[in-house]
Amino acid sequence: MNGLIEIEGMEFYAYHGHFDVEKKVGNRFLVDVRIETNCEAAAKSDQLEDALDYQLVYQIIKEEMKIPSDLLENVCTRILSRLHTTFSEIDLATIKVSKMNPPMGGQIEKVSLTLSL
């Protein structure tokens, strides 16, 4: 039984960016994750130990968001790598990281990067 777990709208304040001001001042980021996995055991047993631990997924993302990076590509790749290392049962994970109000010389709500592994 294939399942899709989505954790959406995680908000973090972090110091990702190429420019010095981004590394000093920081910015607000939104993160969404989609995880495809087999949910059959959890669906039948109704036991947490048979399910993918959503709280641990959040903790991993939170820890990785604390590590400054120049590029969103690096942030997304680190998160996906940790998720796959921690949870062998993941078939596919997709992460979207959005930088709010990026310093691009105009009024821009956000810039986002989505990667899958």
Rank of each mutant, 00 (worst) to 15 (best):
K62A: 03
V75A: 03
N101D: 13
K66I: 14
M104N: 02
E64C: 09
K62D: 09
P68E: 05
I60L: 12
T86S: 14
Y58W: 09
K99G: 02
V75H: 02
I90P: 06
I108G: 04
K99A: 07
M100E: 11
F87Y: 10
C76N: 13
L71V: 04
S81C: 03
E109L: 03
L72P: 04
N74A: 04
G106R: 10
S69Q: 11
I61A: 05
K66Q: 15
I61G: 08
L92K: 14
K96C: 14
P103F: 06
V75R: 03
I60C: 05
L92Q: 07
E73Q: 09
I108L: 11
I61R: 04
S98Y: 02
Q107F: 01
V97T: 11
M65A: 06
S69P: 04
K62L: 05
V97C: 03
D70T: 13
G105D: 08
M104L: 15
A93N: 04
D70A: 08
N74Y: 06
S69E: 10
T85Q: 15
D91M: 12
Y58G: 07
R78N: 03
E89F: 09
D91L: 05
Q59W: 00
P103T: 11
D70P: 01
E89M: 15
I79P: 04
H84V: 13
L72Y: 00
I90M: 06
G105Y: 07
E63M: 02
K110N: 15
S81H: 12
M104A: 04
E109V: 09
E73N: 05
Q107H: 08
T85S: 13
G105L: 03
Q59L: 13
V75L: 00
N101I: 09
I60D: 08
Q107N: 14
I79Q: 03
D70C: 00
V97F: 00
T77P: 06
N101F: 07
T77I: 05
I90R: 02
Q107W: 06
I60H: 07
I79F: 06
Q107C: 02
K110P: 02
A93C: 00
S88R: 15
R78F: 05
E73F: 11
T94N: 06
P68K: 08
T85L: 06
I67L: 11
S81A: 10
M65C: 02
I79K: 06
V75E: 00
T94C: 01
K99I: 10
I61F: 03
C76L: 11
D70K: 15
F87L: 11
E64N: 06
I95T: 09
L92S: 03
E73H: 13
I67M: 09
R78I: 02
Y58E: 10
N101H: 14
P102N: 11
I79V: 04
I60G: 06
H84R: 14
M104C: 02
Y58P: 01
I79M: 12
D70Y: 13
I67G: 05
S81F: 01
G105A: 02
M100A: 03
R82G: 00
A93M: 07
L80A: 03
I79C: 04
D91S: 14
S69I: 05
N74H: 02
Y58T: 13
K96G: 13
T85R: 12
N74I: 08
D91Y: 04
L92D: 01
Q107S: 14
